[in-house]
């Protein structure tokens, strides 16, 4: 039971990061019906910029409290990522808004490669160790002294994610910009006729998504203690799968999808080995029983398939429920 609770805690923390990244995909998709392929790399840039700032501040000898350093680092990462997001939109999407669908996709892939390699040149190929400035405090969740625990960092990540989602919902449903965004999402032409500057709204959407991504990058970096120029690729793919799971274009869906994806991954990696353990079938075959005597962990799948779960979920959702869990729109068949 302790193990299960611990896996849930791991999954929810990971899921919170996915959720924040998934929001970026879903917002852009909602408004221009395109997948922002380079979104994962924006997350990476956020983590990298924050790393540099933390390294400088922590090494400068200024006795700043750890949280202040983290906050300053995040505040530095956000504008950089917003600039990257804006550039992405200007270079890859705006000029090709009316081109065939393939064109902006390919440009975005190109930009993703460029972002990664620029990051490689600036921050080197080596994995960067995030300075451990926040002292980890562990809280016990069960009476068992060796049982499930949660750390202050995990609490912080989950809390911050909830705050950011709430903020985003307020922005979309309670502000003028939010109304404009929803209008453009429904029908850009008509929105334009109503006096909305479509280009500005789309740019803003990209920038908000990028800002969220940068925070996700800082969270991921400080949680796992490592940043790498290729970290955005898998993170982005999984977050995208999460957005599709929740129903792409739907903000609540992205959050739900993200959380679920995190939990699926944690539980999957934790339990798939036992679920597919061939030794349960030892009674059926003597040869199998013999192998199991020597190797009780003989399983068809193990934790090595952890990265596959997200894709399998993605394919299953697309086949059986393309609109996702909360999405209303059926993905159009153009």
């Amino acid at each position: 039971m302790d193990t299960f609770i611990q896996q849930l805690v791991n999954g929810i923390t990971l899921g919170s990061v996915y959720a924040i990244v998934a929001l970026g995909y879903t917002m852009v998709y909602g408004i221009i019906q395109l997948i922002n392929f380079a979104h994962g790399d924006v997350v990476m840039i956020g983590a990298m910029v924050a790393y540099s700032v933390i390294a400088v501040l922590a090494g400068s000898g200024m006795a700043l409290p750890p949280l202040a350093i983290l906050a300053i680092a995040t505040l530095c990462a956000v504008p950089v990522c917003m600039a990257v997001g804006y550039t992405l939109e200007r270079v890859a999407y705006r000029p090709l808004r009316n081109a065939p669908r393939l064109a902006p996709l390919i440009t975005a892939i190109g930009l993703s490669i460029i972002l990664q390699n620029v990051a490689l040149i600036i921050w080197s190929r080596n994995p960067l160790a995030y300075p451990q400035i926040v002292e980890t405090v562990t809280y016990r969740l069960t009476p068992n002294p060796d049982g499930a625990t949660i750390t202050n960092v995990q609490v912080g990540i989950v809390g911050l994610s909830i705050l950011m989602m709430a903020g985003l919902l307020l922005l979309v449903y309670r502000t003028k910009l939010g109304i404009a965004m929803r209008a453009v999402a429904q029908n850009p032409q008509v929105a334009g006729l109503m006096g909305i500057d479509i280009n500005r709204v789309i740019s803003m959407t990209f920038m908000i998504g990028a800002a969220l991504a940068s925070v996700a990058g800082v969270m991921d970096g400080s949680y796992y203690g490592i940043a790498h120029y290729q970290m955005g690729f898998l993170l982005g793919l999984k977050a995208f799968s999460a957005a599709v799971l929740g129903g792409i274009g739907n903000l609540g869906g992205a959050m739900l999808g993200g959380l679920l994806m995190g939990i699926i991954e944690a539980l999957g990696a934790g339990y798939v080995g036992e679920l597919t353990n061939l030794c349960h079938l030892s009674g059926w075959s003597d040869a199998l029983a013999q192998r199991c005597a020597n190797d009780p962990h003989l399983a068809v799948f193990g934790s090595n398939y952890q990265d596959v779960f997200a894709f399998v979920v993605l394919i299953l959702v697309l086949v059986f429920r393309p609109s996702g869990l909360l999405g209303e729109r059926v993905s159009d068949r153009a």
């Binding site: 302790d2 193990t3 611990q6 896996q7 791991n10 999954g11 990971l14 060796d146 991921d220 796992y224 490592i226 790498h228 290729q230 970290m231 898998l234 991954e265 944690a266 539980l267 999957g268 990696a269 934790g270 339990y271 080995g273 020597n294 962990h297 193990g302 934790s303 090595n304 952890q306 990265d307």
Partner: peptide, 30 residues
């Protein structure tokens, strides 16, 4: 280790690009 009679309680795999090891570590901890 097996030949020496040491008990192998878990045999896990991850990937060289992974950053999240908490799932398998939690299993191992159990």
């Amino acid at each position: 280790l097996k030949a020496a009679g040491v008990k192998i309680v878990a045999r896990e795999k991850t990937s060289d690009k992974a950053t999240d090891f908490k799932a398998i570590l939690t299993k191992i901890k159990g």
